Computed example of a mutant assay.
Amino acid sequence: MTRPPGRSLLVLLAVVVAIAIPALQATQDFGMTAQEFSSQGDQTLRAAGYAFSIWGLIYFGMVAYAIYQLTLAPETPTLRAVAWPSVVAISGCGAWILASAFNQQWLSVAIIVVSAATLIWGLLRARAAAPRPAFRDKLLIVWPLSLLAGWLTIASAINILTVLTAQGIISPALSWAVIGITVVLTVGGFVGWRLGSPVYLAPIAWGLIAVYVAEQADKPVAAWLAAGAALVLVAGALAMLRKRR
């Protein structure tokens, strides 16, 4: 079966948009930065700034995926399952930057949650359609998109807490931080188990460790809970790897 050319071009366009919009914001200095946006309500739960360096790896994976599906990939069940969901999720990365730049708080929540849910749905479809995809599909499709999905999972939780705090709907209390971390562990663990994907779990654990670093002075209970949750996910990822071997 041949690949729909329009779909392949839309995947490439989504990647260009996801990378170009933050680059334009950095060079043209329009709107609020992501840090300024988050600082309005990050008193409940925050991650250390270094955690966002993962975007370098995510962008690299996006580019590799876009080129592969456009020029080299056959039309496999894996690609059919994730291609359209990836357009939504990757476009959402650029759209979120615009929403945060113009301080559209609830829009930012909708964008990131829809992006995460759509991409997870696509990956679950891909696993059902091809439980053992070819290595090149894993390397250039499943792994890059799983990395993005994992990061969007924990980023969604932090984004929601940030907006709820900024809107005055919740107070920056320890209980809300604990709820947020618990939800991340529960959702991330369940989805990671369904996907059988250590790659999906890795950015969630990375983000939880960054929460530990950021919160250990002000919220030590939440910090240690985040560290414990990260260890649980790492243990789960290692168990998956051992099972495959």
Rank of each mutant, 00 (worst) to 15 (best):
L13Q: 05
A14N: 08
A14K: 05
V15S: 11
V15N: 05
V16F: 14
A20P: 04
P22M: 03
L24P: 06
D29G: 10
Q35G: 12
E36P: 00
Q40G: 12
D42I: 04
Q43G: 13
Q43P: 02
A48F: 09
A48N: 08
G49M: 08
A51T: 13
F52K: 03
S53Y: 05
S53A: 14
I54D: 11
G56P: 04
I58C: 10
F60T: 15
M62T: 05
T71N: 03
P77S: 12
P77L: 08
A81E: 10
V82F: 08
S86C: 01
V87D: 03
V87Y: 02
V88Y: 01
A89F: 01
A89K: 01
S91H: 00
S91I: 00
C93D: 00
I97V: 15
S100T: 14
A110F: 10
I111M: 06
I112T: 10
V114S: 13
T118N: 06
G122E: 01
R125N: 10
A126D: 07
A129K: 08
A130N: 14
P131I: 01
R132N: 11
P133V: 10
P133F: 10
P133K: 13
L140N: 04
V142E: 11
W143N: 05
L145H: 02
S146Q: 06
S146R: 01
L147K: 07
L148P: 00
L148C: 07
G150E: 12
G150S: 07
A155T: 12
A157G: 14
A157D: 08
I160Y: 12
T162A: 06
T162H: 06
T165R: 07
A166C: 05
G168V: 08
A177F: 02
A177K: 07
V183H: 06
L185D: 09
V187I: 14
G188E: 11
F190H: 14
F190V: 14
V191L: 15
L195F: 09
P198N: 09
I204W: 13
I204T: 11
A205E: 02
W206G: 13
W206E: 14
I209H: 05
A214C: 06
V221P: 00
A223S: 09
A226H: 07
G228S: 07
L233D: 14
G236A: 11
M240Q: 15
L241F: 11
R242T: 10
